[in-house]
Design a protein around this nucleic acid. Sequence first.
DNA 1: CATATGTCCTGAGAGC
DNA 2: TGCTCTCAGGACATAT
Length: 274
Amino acid sequence: MRRGIAHIAGRRILNVERAPCSRRPIEILPRIDVFRRRVQGQVIREVGRLGKRVVLVLEDEQRIILEPRMTGLVLMADPPTVDHLRISITLERVAQPLLFWDRRGLGSVRLCSADEYAKRYGLEKIGPDALVISPAELRSRLCTSRREIKVALLDQRAVAGVGNLYASELLHLARIHPARRCDTLRKAEWERIHAAMLAILQTAIKYEGSTLSDGTYRNALNESGNYQNHHRVYDRADQPCQQCKGGIIQRIVQAQRSTFFCAKCQTRRSRTRS
DNA sequence: CATATGTCCTGAGAGC
DNA sequence: TGCTCTCAGGACATAT
């Protein structure tokens, strides 16, 4: 998402409008008239990312945080439908406005001063990024937890950027059972988890994300992703594991979320040291 | 303090 | 066919 709109860096904001949407409004803070007054005329200095959020850094250090959650899209193109369009940001000398579209409306758009941003999104709220964190840091942040590893990986304060789909995917690549308690994992296993996390996320980014059967995720040009065609386990319950050719993908529920894994590749116990 | 659960939302798909 | 029901998972508030 971030890369899809990275080219708007350097552009000046002309206007911000709440789109006419018949649905319950998403959270937009502050209210739209205050929002508009504070950003109008500001140049977007940087198009950044904080975990799963896209962050527009303005020339006066204010930040616009676009939080898509499940079904939100950040677009520089026509949206899938006009119905769920939420906010529109027009830019100087760019015909196409920046749009935030959100079918289910769980997402939000928020404008923060530099201080408010530091308080609300500091390191104690959003942990180190999954693409940047070191293996040692990942391990030290989670190795005393009694939670199951798949559940712990979704905690954005521990490590930022891993969602439900990719947690299953990376644990399959790492050959770690999703229900393994963090405090039972050995150093070599943490290193496998870290390497798999990087590999899965980098590959998923390369393929522009996963557009699932509900068709929701689209890139900034409203095009489908392609990583769903590379899923190892996610949404593949009862299908054979492509890795071991013998296992059948299982679906379980952890913390009210689906987890997919191959019981043959991902054994519940770590191999005992020889 | 750490961990677990409930909440919001829409539309696809299942089941009858 | 058309209806009702369940489910998907982000982050955060509240409960244990």
